[in-house]
Amino acid sequence: MTQTLLTLLDWFLPIAYLALWTVHARTFRLPLDQDRPTWLERITGKIPLMIMLAIHAGYTILRGLAQQAWPLSNKAEFFSLLALSILAVWLFTQRDEEDAQTGIFFLGITATFQIFACALMIPIKDTTHPILHENPIYGVHVLFMVLGFAALAVGAIDAIMYILLARALKNREMGLVFQKLPPLIRIEETSKRATVTGIFLLGIGLSLGHIVALYGLDSVNPWDPKIVLTDLAWLAYIVGMITIKLKGLGGLRMGYLSLAAFIILMLTVAISSLYLPSFHSFPG
C-alpha cells in the first residue's frame, strides 16, 4: 500500500512540477502590463505552490517512515530533497511578494531535480542504508545542510538576476532582461533574504554535524580537512555579510560578492570531496 502510494507520488511529483513550470513559463511570456486571465493568476499564485510543497514534504516523510530512516540513502532521495529544499526556500524568499515572477527559473530547477529523482528512484524494499541514517540528529544535520545550500543557491541565482538587470539599466538596454525580470529592489531583497537564511541554516547544520561527529561516531579527526574547509567557507560567508552590512555595500558590488561567495563555497565543497581524504562523504 505504502509502496504503491510512493510509486504514484514518484510519478506525480515531476509531472506536477513540469505542469506548474509550464504555466509559470506561459505567464513569463506575457507582457507585465497585460491583464492575466483569472485561471492563470490562480494557478501561478502561492496556493498551488504551497500545496506542492506540502505534497512533496508528505512524500519525503512517508518515504522516511517506510524505511525507518532518513530518506537520504541514494542519489534519487538526495535529488528529491534538493528539489524540495529549493522550492521551500524560494517560496520563503517570495513570501512578501504578490506574485512569484521568477517561477520559470526556480520551478525549472525543482522540476529537473525531481525528474532525476524519479528516474533513479528504487523501491523501498531494495534500499539499504547505513545505521547512521537512523540517527535523528544526523538527519536534521543533513536536512539543514541541504536547506542551507539550497538557500545560498537561491541567493546566488537572485544575485545573477540582479547583476543582469542592473547592467541592463546601466547600459540602457531595454531588451528581454529589462522586460522580464522583477524590479531590482525586489531581487535585491530576495537575494539578501535567501543568503541570510542560507547562512543561518548552514550554521545550524554544521553545528549539528559537529555534535553527530563528536558523539555519534567512533573515531573522528577534529581537523578533518573537509570539515575545516566547510567551516571556513561558512565563516567567510558570515564575514562577507558583516562587511557588506558595516560598509553599506550595495548595488552591483553586492551582487558580485554574493555570486563569488557561492562559487567559492561550491568549489571548496567540490575540491574537498574529490581530492581530500576524509571520514565524511557528501550525499550521493
Binding site: 538587470l165 524590479p183 531590482l184 525586489r186
Partner: peptide, 18 residues
C-alpha cells in the same frame, strides 16, 4: 512600451523600485 518621456521615466523607475 511607452512613447512619452514621462511615462518612460515611470516605467524605468518601476523596474528599479517596483
Amino acid at each position: 512600451g511607452n512613447v512619452s518621456i514621462s511615462s518612460v521615466s515611470v516605467d524605468l523607475a518601476k523596474k528599479i523600485f517596483g
